[in-house]
Amino acid sequence: MQNKFIVIEGIEGSGKTNACKQVEKSLKLFGINNSVLIREPGSTKIGEKIRKIVKEKNIDEKITKKTELLLMYAARTQLIETVIKPELKKGSWIISDRFDMSSIAYQGAGSRININLINNLKKFLVEPLYPDLILYLDIDPIIGLKRIKKNRKYLDRIEQKKISFFIRARKKYLELINLNPTAIKINANQKISIVNELVHKTVKKWLKKVKK
């Protein structure tokens, strides 16, 4: 089967990292062993340095909203040019923890940056690269943040944002998902074992569809 680009999206605490691993396991069950797991921001030396800057809560200098947006796209561009495109060209399957939709939800709706500005960055830096499948893990922000606080000793700068930020981000995610034919919503409010099973069944059904 021809290689694909799969993206997992969702707000904090939705279980994206776990879902990425489940997608990889599901692909292997269908004989697809050439998958590459990546995360945003990150998965390149430059991207990981940007990730630390964006997430560091004790940073001496405040990061402005537009600076955060540009840092995200800097990391994304580096990832696209040095990992995603080369790996797809080699025939690898890409499984990404976040991609471009997250900037529209987080920096756009969450931080209230003009969506047109973000779309212009997307057109210039990302398109015509589009995911073949987007799995959106939908979770109540309150539940998501409770999960994080339960499993973390401390919250990073993004996780410390007000609940209203994540409510706006989730609302935008849902709007985007409803308009995107490659996106599938999964209820992530449930136990991880149940979510994993839903992810597996969704990937299985999707693979049978694209295989035709």
Results as ranks from 00 to 15, higher is better:
Glu24Lys: 15
Lys25His: 09
Lys25Asn: 15
Lys25Ser: 14
Ser26Ile: 00
Leu27Arg: 09
Lys28Met: 14
Leu29Val: 08
Leu29Lys: 15
Gly31Ser: 00
Ile32Ser: 04
Ile32Leu: 13
Asn33Phe: 13
Asn33Leu: 07
Asn34Glu: 10
Asn34Val: 04
Ser35His: 09
Val36Arg: 13
Leu37Trp: 03
Ile38Phe: 03
Glu40Tyr: 01
Glu40Gln: 03
Pro41Ser: 07
Pro41Thr: 05
Gly42Glu: 06
Ser43Gln: 10
Ser43Pro: 14
Ser43Leu: 09
Lys45Ala: 15
Ile46Tyr: 14
Gly47Gln: 12
Gly47Glu: 11
Glu48Phe: 11
Glu48Pro: 00
Lys49Trp: 03
Ile50Phe: 12
Lys52Asp: 13
Lys52Arg: 12
Ile53Thr: 12
Val54Lys: 05
Val54Gly: 03
Val54Leu: 15
Val54Ile: 15
Val54Phe: 02
Val54Ser: 05
Lys55Ala: 07
Glu56Ala: 11
Glu56Trp: 06
Lys57Ser: 11
Asn58Met: 00
Asn58Gly: 00
Asn58His: 07
Asp60Trp: 00
Asp60Phe: 01
Lys62Thr: 12
Lys62Trp: 00
Ile63Gln: 05
Ile63Trp: 04
Ile63Lys: 05
Lys65Val: 02
Lys66Ala: 05
Lys66Asp: 06
Thr67Leu: 10
Thr67Ala: 13
Leu70Asp: 02
Leu71Asn: 10
Met72Gly: 01
Tyr73Lys: 03
Ala74Thr: 15
Ala74Cys: 14
Arg76Ile: 12
Arg76Cys: 03
Thr77Val: 09
Thr77Ser: 15
Gln78Thr: 03
Gln78Lys: 09
Leu79Lys: 12
Leu79Arg: 11
Ile80Phe: 06
Ile80Gly: 01
Glu81Gln: 15
Thr82Tyr: 13
Val83Leu: 10
Val83Arg: 13
Ile84Ser: 01
Lys85Glu: 13
Lys85Ala: 09
Glu87Pro: 10
Leu88Ser: 08
Leu88Pro: 12
Lys89Ser: 10
Lys90Met: 07
Lys90Tyr: 02
Gly91Thr: 14
Gly91Ser: 08
Ser92Trp: 06
Trp93Ala: 02
Trp93Tyr: 15
Trp93Lys: 01
Ile94Val: 09
Ile95Phe: 07
Ser96Phe: 06
Ser96Trp: 03
Asp97Thr: 08
Arg98Cys: 11
Arg98Asn: 08
Arg98Ile: 10
Arg98Ala: 12
Phe99Lys: 06
Phe99Ser: 04
Phe99Asp: 02
Asp100Ser: 14
Asp100Val: 14
Asp100Gly: 13
Asp100Lys: 04
Met101Thr: 14
Ser102Met: 08
Ser102Glu: 07
Ser103Ile: 11
Ile104Ala: 08
Ala105Trp: 05
Tyr106Asp: 06
Tyr106Met: 01
Gln107Val: 11
Gln107Lys: 00
Gly108Pro: 11
Ala109Asp: 01
Gly110Asn: 04
Ser111Ile: 01
Arg112Tyr: 08
Ile113Glu: 02
Asn114Phe: 05
Ile115Val: 14
Ile115Phe: 12
Asn116Thr: 13
Leu117Arg: 04
Leu117Val: 13
Leu117Cys: 04
Leu117Pro: 00
Ile118Ala: 04
Ile118Gln: 02
Asn119Asp: 13
